[in-house]
Write a protein that binds this DNA or RNA. Sequence first.
DNA 1: GGCAGCCTGGTT
DNA 2: AACCAGGCTGCC
Length: 240
Amino acid sequence: MLLEGSEIQQVLRHGKQLGVIGDCGTIGVHLGMTGQFLYRGPGERLAKGDHVHVTWTLVGPRGKSGGRLVFRDPRRFGGIWAYRDQNALRCRWEALGPDALTIGAGELGERLRPSRATRQVVRNVKAALLDQSTVAGVGNIYADEALFRSGIRPTRPVDELSDTEIDRLSWAVREVLTEAVESGGSTLRDYVDADGSAGSFQLRHRVYGRGGQMCITCGEPLQSGTVAQRMTVWCPCCQH
DNA sequence: GGCAGCCTGGTT
DNA sequence: AACCAGGCTGCC
C-alpha cells in the first residue's frame, strides 16, 4: 500500500533516506545508486524506457489531473518501503546517526572516535564516514571530497584524529554537502532531479574521479585506490 | 570489523 | 566476454 488514496501531508529526509507521510500510510524511500523520482504534469509524456517500478497518479485541486510521479531505478539498488504510520518510519530511522548537513564538530567527534568500551577495532576515517549509523548522509563521493578539504587521509585511524582535525572535517562535510545540494547534486551519469535537470557538482569535484590527475592545491598527482571497500582518491601531499 | 552479493549499463 | 562502480544488507 504505497500511499494509495492518501493525501500527502509531509515529506521528510534524514541522511539519504526519504519519507513521505500520507493520511493513510507512510513510505520510506532510498534512491540507492540510480533511483530517481520523475514528475510529469498532466498530459506530459512519461519518459519511455524501462525500469519504472512505481507510478503514482496524482490528483489536483477539484479532482483535476495532477500529473504523475514515477519512481524508476535501472540498477535496483534503491527501494521503497511501506509503513503503518510515521512512527514506524521514525523507528527505522533511529539506527541512523545525526544528519550530515547539520552535524556539529562535537557530535561528529563523539561518534567517529571509538569509545574504548564498545569498539575494540579502530577503523579508518573513511569507513567511519560512510557508516550511516555514525553520521547519516555521506556517500562515497562526498566522503572523499570532505576528507580532501579537511586535509585528512582516508586511511587515518579515527582514534588518532585531533580535535582540530575533527573540527575541520565536520566543517568540510557540511560545506561539501551544502554546495552539492546547491549545485543540484553530482550527475556522473544518470542522476536527474524530479524535473529532469542534471546536477553540476561533478564539475567541482576536487578529488573524486580525478585519480592520477594533478592536485588542484599542490599540483602533485592524486592517488587512487580502495579504502573501506570503495574507490577512493586523495592527495598524498595535502592530506595527512 | 571485512566482505560477498544484489543489479545494470558502460567500458575494456 | 569479462570487469567495474556503488549503498546497503546480511553473513562470517
